[in-house]
C-alpha cells in the first residue's frame, strides 16, 4: 500500500480506534461487572418484595433495562448506519454492524423475561400485549438487518444496503408501536396490560437505574470488542493490522 493521503486517512483512523478501544474495554468491563453485582445484590436481596406480586416482580430489574436497551440500540444502530451511508464513514458502518447482535440479544432477553414474568402474573407465558408485540416486531427487524448483512458478500454493499433497511426500520418503529397499541386497545379492552408498579419505592427505582446503567456499560464493552474484531477482518490487508498482529515484533 502506498503512503498517499487518502489511504493514510482511511487506515490510520481505524488503527487509532482499535488501540483506543483496546485500552478502554477492560475499564468498561470492570464497571459493567461492578454495576451488575451491586444492582443484582440490591435487586435480589435488599429491595423489599412487591406487595402484590411478591418476589416475582424482581425480574423487572432485568426486563426493563433489556427492553430499553433493545429499543435504544436500534435507534443508535440506524444513526450509525445513516452516517456510514451518507458520509461514507467506514467506522460508522463497523459500529452499526457491531451494535446489531447486542441489540437483538437485549430485545430477545426482554421478550424472554417478559414471558417468565407473565407466567406468575397472568397465568400464561405469552399475551399479545402491545409492548410485547412491538418488541417481537423489533426483534424481527434486528434479524432482518443481520440476515441482509450476512447475505451480501461485498462488505461495502452489505453495509449500505442494510443501512437503508435500518433507516426504513427506524422510521417504521413508531408507526408500528402506535398501530399495535391501537390494535391492542381495540381488541383487548380492559383485560390485561403490562403496567409498572404504580408507586415505586426509592430503593426499587435506584436499583433499576443501576441495572440500566449496567446494561449500558455491557453494551459499550461488547460493541467495542465486536467492532475491533470487525475492523481487523475488514482491514486485514492494511499495514496497521499486520503490525499489531505480529505483537510488535517489528
Amino acid at each position: 500500500m502506498s503512503e498517499r493521503g487518502i489511504q493514510w486517512f482511511r487506515f490510520t483512523a481505524p488503527a487509532n480506534f482499535y488501540d483506543l478501544a483496546g485500552r478502554l474495554i477492560p475499564w468498561f468491563a470492570a464497571v459493567t461487572v461492578a454495576l451488575f453485582a451491586v444492582g443484582l445484590y440490591l435487586g435480589l436481596v435488599v429491595a423489599p418484595p412487591d406487595y402484590q406480586q411478591g418476589d416475582s416482580y424482581r425480574i423487572i430489574y432485568i426486563h426493563v433495562p433489556t427492553a430499553w436497551m433493545g429499543m435504544f440500540l436500534y435507534v443508535l444502530m440506524a444513526v450509525y448506519a445513516a452516517i456510514g451511508l451518507i458520509w461514507r464513514i467506514k467506522m460508522a458502518d463497523v459500529m452499526a454492524k457491531a451494535i446489531a447482535p447486542t441489540g437483538a440479544l437485549f430485545t430477545f432477553l426482554s421478550l424472554w423475561t417478559g414471558a417468565l414474568w407473565g407466567r406468575p402474573t397472568w397465568g400464561v407465558y405469552w399475551v399479545w400485549d402491545a409492548r410485547l408485540t412491538s418488541m417481537l416486531i423489533l426483534l424481527f427487524l434486528y434479524l432482518g438487518y443481520m440476515a441482509l448483512h450476512a447475505a451480501i458478500d461485498d462488505r461495502q454493499r452489505a453495509s449500505n444496503a442494510s443501512a437503508v433497511l435500518a433507516m426504513v426500520g427506524v422510521v417504521n418503529v413508531p408507526i408500528i408501536y402506535f398501530s399495535v397499541q391501537w390494535w391492542n386497545t381495540l381488541h383487548q379492552g380492559a383485560s390485561i396490560t403490562v403496567t409498572d408498579a404504580p408507586t415505586m419505592a426509592t430503593i426499587m427505582f435506584v436499583t433499576l437505574m443501576i441495572m440500566v446503567l449496567a446494561a449500558w456499560m455491557y453494551s459499550v464493552t461488547v460493541v467495542l470488542a465486536r467492532a475491533r474484531v470487525e475492523l481487523l477482518e475488514r482491514e486485514r490487508n492494511a499495514r496497521w493490522v499486520q503490525e499489531r498482529l505480529e505483537g510488535g515484533s517489528k
Binding site: 502506498s2 498517499r4 458478500d153 462488505r155 486485514r236
Partner: peptide, 10 residues
C-alpha cells in the same frame, strides 16, 4: 476496489 482488492488507483 472490488472486495478487498485494489483494482487501480491514481
Amino acid at each position: 476496489e472490488r472486495g478487498e482488492r485494489l483494482l487501480f488507483e491514481k
